[in-house]
Design a protein around this nucleic acid. Structure first.
Lengths: 139, 139
DNA sequence: GGTGAATCTGAAAACTACTATCACTTTCGA
DNA sequence: TCGAAAGTGATAGTAGTTTTCAGATTCACC
């Protein structure tokens, strides 16, 4: 039985390019697959959508980029890997912000124990209106 | 200026039917629009998808049913309105469970204050494997 | 009741994000 | 160098949801 030590070792050139695009543009920002594709095209004009999607899927599976699944937004966003955090989505302008918040470990452990779950991911999402969108209309 | 007091007052017949279907079948369960449609058809065989979708959208906007937006599941679920709670989605079998958990109010208030957000919804989602799906494969 | 405007309706087409297919090319290990 | 395995881009396909459209229904007002 072989153990793959570095997932990077066998990463195809285009996949590495995609990873770089996410790391360069996606720190604190949230890129759609289309965004990533258009960034990637600046360096590799012939790269296709399919390759970008395939790359993002694999990179996410390998833990080299983070998928950001935002309920209510009907696209998947990508960002560089970071510690666990929450997301805020402004219902008015659609922008998504990172928040430095995570659920208390004890709470997660309790839920897992009580229900017999094995909990992998914990997603915390806030929806509302961001500071800029609140101003004009008042409350 | 007129103020609409009861949102129910002007609810079209089919929309009320859809609401009833969700309330009858969707307490503690999670119905897709297709589920709702097929339940509704048992009472109103000529009702179409469009009407069900339109009804669900409006009912959700009016707060008469709850949309369950589960990241990773690519459908929207609906359930009757209930107090705030979290959802667990089993990545293996796809089932979705209600959990009696909500974020500490103080935490939400702090985030809103710090960022200037007006926070409406708070969504907490756990993903992992449910008790039944853990058994066969072990860990 | 009667009337006209606004709303609702269902079938079907359109939309959108994403995935699968296909034939071709590239990569990699031996 | 060779052959198998993996990657590639164009294109077609998929699925959930939304839009369109012409006809039916409802409602406020008389």
């Amino acid at each position: 039985m072989k153990i793959i030590v570095t997932a990077e070792a066998r990463l195809p050139k285009n996949y590495a390019l995609v990873r770089d695009m996410v790391h360069e543009h996606g720190t604190g920002r949230h890129l759609t697959a289309a965004d990533v594709h258009s960034f990637a095209k600046q360096r590799q004009p012939r790269i296709g959508y399919s390759t970008v999607y395939r790359a993002l899927n694999r990179l996410a599976r390998l833990g080299l980029v983070s998928e950001v699944l935002v309920p209510g937004a009907d696209v998947t966003y990508y960002e560089s890997v970071a510690g666990p955090h929450a997301h805020f989505r402004c219902a008015a302008c659609g922008r998504i912000d990172d928040l430095d918040y995570r659920l208390p470990k004890a709470a997660v452990a309790r839920i897992a124990r009580e229900h017999g779950f094995e909990i992998g991911d914990v997603l915390v999402n806030f929806t509302g209106r961001c500071a800029s969108c609140r101003e004009p209309a008042g409350g």
